Amino acid sequence: MTDTKTLYRPVGPKELKLIKESGWKAFPPRLPEQPIFYPVLNEEYACQIAKDWNVKASGSGYVTQFDVKANYLAQFEVQNVGGFIHDELWVPAENLEEFNQNIVGQIKVIHEFFPD
């Protein structure tokens, strides 16, 4: 049995479509202006981003949940970018394919947000 860590990723509808097209197995490559992939460590923070940023930017926001092999994640230092819930990992875009290979199981959508 592999030890895993549950992570979260807030996404908009375009990224969600690409995740679905992967069979719920992988996050899409980053755009050239996006050098870092930012999975977050807690559901509350992911919901905050999906509601406050993704809905405003693209009309809807989604929170994905997925498990990653813990031994793989050990190479990434936790980054706190604000309050006590604002913990995330900074995965270089060039490592995203390797990151995806260390996802165990499927990526799930656990929350959906739309404009009020």
Rank of each mutant, 00 (worst) to 15 (best):
Q34M: 10
Y38F: 15
P115E: 11
L89Y: 15
P115A: 12
F84E: 14
K14D: 14
P39H: 06
Q101G: 14
C47K: 13
F114I: 05
K14S: 12
V81P: 00
V109E: 09
T64S: 07
V11Q: 02
I107P: 03
N100P: 08
E94W: 14
A50G: 07
S22D: 07
I107C: 05
G23F: 08
E43R: 13
E77Q: 14
E112H: 14
P39G: 01
I103F: 14
P10L: 07
N42F: 07
F27W: 08
V91Y: 08
V68N: 00
V40D: 01
E77D: 12
F76I: 03
E97V: 12
T64M: 04
I36W: 14
H86I: 02
V68I: 09
F76H: 06
A26N: 05
N54M: 13
F99W: 11
W90V: 00
T2Y: 08
V63P: 02
Y62P: 00
Q34I: 03
E97K: 13
D116N: 13
Y8A: 01
E112K: 15
G82T: 09
D67M: 04
Y62V: 01
Q101K: 15
W90G: 00
G82M: 11
N42P: 02
P32F: 11
F66H: 01
G61R: 03
F76Q: 03
V81R: 13
G61A: 08
K14L: 12
I19D: 02
C47H: 04
R30D: 02
V109I: 12
